[in-house]
Design a protein around this nucleic acid. Structure first.
Lengths: 113, 113
DNA sequence: ATATGAATTGCATAGTTCTTCAATTGACCA
DNA sequence: TGGTCAATTGAAGAACTATGCAATTCATAT
C-alpha cells in the first residue's frame, strides 16, 4: 500500500465531486435510508443512482445492507458533516469575495464617470 | 445565476480532486508563494503546474499577482484548513474502519479452523 | 414454477479532464 | 534590439467518468 496522504485526499475529493453523490451523503446524514427513498428524493433514473451508489460504496464512505427486497444505505460511521460544513463556508466565503469584487467594480465604474 | 448548493459543492470538490492541486493548496496555507518555489516543492513540469494553477485560479480559490518576472500565488482569503482537516479525519476514520474489518476477518479466520 | 418489484450490472456512447509538447507573452539585462 | 528566464497558453491524443438502455439478480408473492 502506502499511498501519499495528498493523493488519498485527492481521491476522496474526486469521489465527492458529483451532485448526486453529494445529495446522497446529505440525505444519509439524517440516518440510514433505503434506495427507494433516495430515488424518491432525487430526480434520477434508478440505474444512474445505482452507479453513483456503487462509487460511494467502493470508496468505503457508505455501507449497503439488504433488508428483504430493499437495500438500505448508511454512512460508514464517518463524519461527513464537518466536510460539508467546511465546504459551505468556503463557498459563502468565495461568493462574498465575488460580491466584494462586484462592489469594487461598481465603485470604479461610478467614480470613473 | 442560481446554482443549487449541492451542485456548487460538487464543483468545489471536483476542483479539489487532483493531487497536484491539493499539494498547492497545502503549501499555500503557510503563506503566499511564487511559482518557482511551488515547482521546487512539487515534482512536476512547469506547464503541468501552470495548468493546475489555472484550474485553481478559475475556481477563485487562489489569486495570482505578478511581482517583476515572478508570479506569486496566495489563498483567496478562504479557510482551506478546515476542509483539509475534515478530509484527514474522514480518511483516518475510513482507514480505521478497514483496519477493524481486517481484524474481524482475521478473527473469523482463526475461529474457523 | 412463474411473475413481479427492487436494485444492480454490463455495455456503448458521449463528454470531460489530464498530460505533454511546442509556441507565446512579459520582464529584465547586455 | 536581441537574448534569456519565468510562466502561461494552445492544441492533440490518451485516459477517465457519466449517462441511459437492456439484461440480470435476488427476494417475495401467487
Amino acid at each position: 500500500m502506502q499511498v501519499p496522504l495528498y493523493q488519498a485526499k485527492a481521491e476522496l475529493f474526486r469521489m465527492l465531486g458529483h451532485p448526486v453523490r453529494i445529495r446522497v451523503l446529505e440525505l444519509l446524514q439524517a440516518g440510514p435510508m433505503p434506495v427507494r427513498d433516495l430515488l424518491g428524493a432525487i430526480e434520477i433514473e434508478p440505474s444512474s443512482l445505482s452507479q453513483q451508489l456503487a462509487v460511494l460504496r467502493r470508496s468505503g464512505i457508505v455501507t449497503a445492507t439488504r433488508d428483504g427486497s430493499t437495500v438500505v444505505y448508511a454512512l460508514a460511521g464517518v463524519d461527513v458533516a464537518a466536510l460539508m460544513q467546511a465546504a459551505r463556508r468556503i463557498l459563502t466565503g468565495m461568493l462574498a469575495g465575488q460580491a466584494g469584487l462586484l462592489e469594487e467594480l461598481r465603485e470604479a465604474e461610478t467614480s470613473a464617470r
